[in-house]
């Protein structure tokens, strides 16, 4: 323990910083993003060095430069673009067809206690079944085709969206309902002016989870019974023992995840302008 000695006065100096987020220079958000880039770049440099010095086995961990040249190869043949496009279309439909009914069901469960009472246990029972486990059944029912892939995805998307949407409506502060009542809002006006905007924030958390699920499932769905798409290409590379080809798929998947999340964030900003700082 340190002995308490005579009190030394401590002087704090707080200097003005100017208005934050105003004027020239980077905004805190973009500075944050810039720092965010530093991590991956550093990792890539270290990786490259480790491969060049043979500490990492280039058979399993091809150097970043090799992955890049593989990507360039696949781009020139047009194969990569083709796969990416096919997967994007599947994710798009799977996400949309899961998200829309998910939001509608979630809203009805949150708004109408009867619907909630009926569907709550059902959702709770179905939700934990891994959607991958259902894939064989879906393949039997729909055959091997686009429909099957989209169904697998939408099943993964719909549950987190339902649950978050319903929670968003249910957890709305009661005071807003009182205000709407006091101002004689009709039921419909209440939905439009209070329930919907009030639940939006939670709806978007559901959608973010849904996008994650869709990207997870697209790979699995395309590994079986597909002749195109990123998941298919990944599996094909495996059967050919083309390891740098596998890495191309990893990179593309990471990029897709990033892009979808960014897009969703943009939509969120557009739909919820009051969230902007």
């Amino acid at each position: 323990m340190q002995e308490q000695t005579a009190m030394e006065p401590i002087t704090f100096v707080v200097r003005g910083t100017g208005v934050k987020g105003a004027g020239a220079g980077l905004s805190p958000a973009s500075r944050h993003r810039l720092f965010g880039l530093a991590g991956p770049i550093l990792l890539l440099v270290i990786w490259q060095l480790l491969v060049m010095t043979n500490i990492l086995n280039p058979v399993f961990f091809p150097a970043p430069t090799q992955i890049v040249s593989e990507i360039v190869n696949n781009l020139t043949t047009g194969q990569l673009q083709g796969d990416v496009w096919v997967s994007i279309v599947r994710v798009f439909w799977g996400f949309l067809l899961g998200a829309i009914p998910g939001v509608i069901l979630g809203l009805s469960m949150g708004l109408f206690p009867l619907v909630g009472a009926i569907l709550d246990p059902l959702v709770a029972a179905l939700m934990p079944i891994p959607k991958l486990a259902l894939m064989p059944l879906i393949m039997v029912i729909f055959g091997l085709g686009e429909t099957e892939k989209v169904v697998v995805l939408l099943l993964g998307v719909v549950f987190p969206v339902i649950i978050n949407t319903a929670a968003g409506v249910r957890n709305l502060d009661r005071i807003y309902l009182d205000v709407a009542k006091n101002y004689n809002a009709s039921t419909w006006q209440y939905y439009r002016s209070v329930a919907w905007p009030g639940a939006l924030s939670m709806i978007f958390s559901g959608l973010r989870l849904g996008i994650g699920m869709a990207l997870l499932l697209i790979v699995a769905a395309e590994m079986h019974g597909a002749l195109s798409g990123i998941g298919y290409r990944l599996w094909y590379s495996y059967t050919m023992f083309n390891i740098s080809g596998m890495y191309v798929s990893f990179v593309v998947l990471a990029l897709l995840g990033f892009i979808f999340t960014m897009l969703l964030e943009e939509v969120e900003h557009l739909v919820m302008p009051w969230k902007r700082a």
Partner: peptide, 13 residues
């Protein structure tokens, strides 16, 4: 019309 004790303005408007 009531003015509520808590903050009851709608954050989304």
């Amino acid at each position: 019309s009531m003015v509520f004790q808590e903050h009851a303005v709608f954050p989304w408007m």
